[in-house]
Design a protein around this nucleic acid. Structure first.
Lengths: 120, 120
DNA sequence: GCTTGACTTAGAGTTCACTCTAAGTGGTAT
DNA sequence: ATACCACTTAGAGTGAACTCTAAGTCAAGC
């Protein structure tokens, strides 16, 4: 399966601007072109993009993602380093979930208080 | 228990700038002053601030929080309306958690893949 | 008496990650 | 042929929520 820039953008929920931007800043690498110079995205590119969005949506800054991309360009011997970064990030995501859970409890507490003030 | 602006800021993890800012834009109301015009924050103010931070940290924009504050200024008859807003927000927080859980799975998948490529 | 920390207004600056524009070229589809 | 979508570079603009500065005043504590 292959996609144009607009197709991939729609599929993943970003704009074509963003895809060119990601390429320019080095998050997406070696995007193939057709005979007219038009970008052709592959499954491989999609899977990278999905990882990028996953990391971005869980709060990893661009710079951190670029590190991972950079490492993976350098070959399999950087897998342990990449794994390390990802594990660290995983920890942070777990913390986010913990935090969110506490906030949810706080919201529930407030809702309960509202109900006590005025049952509906 | 009562606090100066700096004490409250430290307690809650914001800056004194932010506390004055929140007051200026109407998130914190009727902050008491001592005889020299210095702000004195009470437990009541603290509980508001904690709610504000909870809502902000779960993604509610300033404008939404201001709505709740505005309503609560208008008396108990607005409790159902406030409750409605909070319930809606609660739903969004649950969605965030769901999303985070999915991302965590994705990260775990990638970590697993790394391990298959290079066990450590 | 000097430092520290509070106060004021008004507005400028920061951060991050996009997001878009201009101004031009060129292939594809109707 | 006329949209439409792709491409380029270079840079400007956006949004949200802070975050800080200037320039001055004032009171408390050492």
């Amino acid at each position: 399966m292959e996609w144009t820039i607009q197709e991939l953008a729609d599929k993943v929920g970003v704009t074509s601007h963003t895809l060119r931007y990601y390429e320019k800043i080095g998050l997406l690498r070696n995007i193939r072109r057709n005979e007219n110079g038009v970008r052709v995205y592959t499954e491989y590119d999609l899977s990278w993009l999905e990882l990028i969005r996953c990391l971005r949506n869980t709060g990893m800054p661009i710079e951190g993602i670029r590190q991972i991309v950079e490492l993976s360009m350098q070959g399999d011997h950087t897998i342990p380093a990449r794994k390390q970064i990802l594990r660290e990030h995983r920890r942070k995501v777990e913390q986010q979930m913990e935090e969110l859970k506490n906030y949810l409890d706080k919201i529930d507490g407030k809702l309960k208080w509202y109900s006590e003030q005025m049952p509906d």
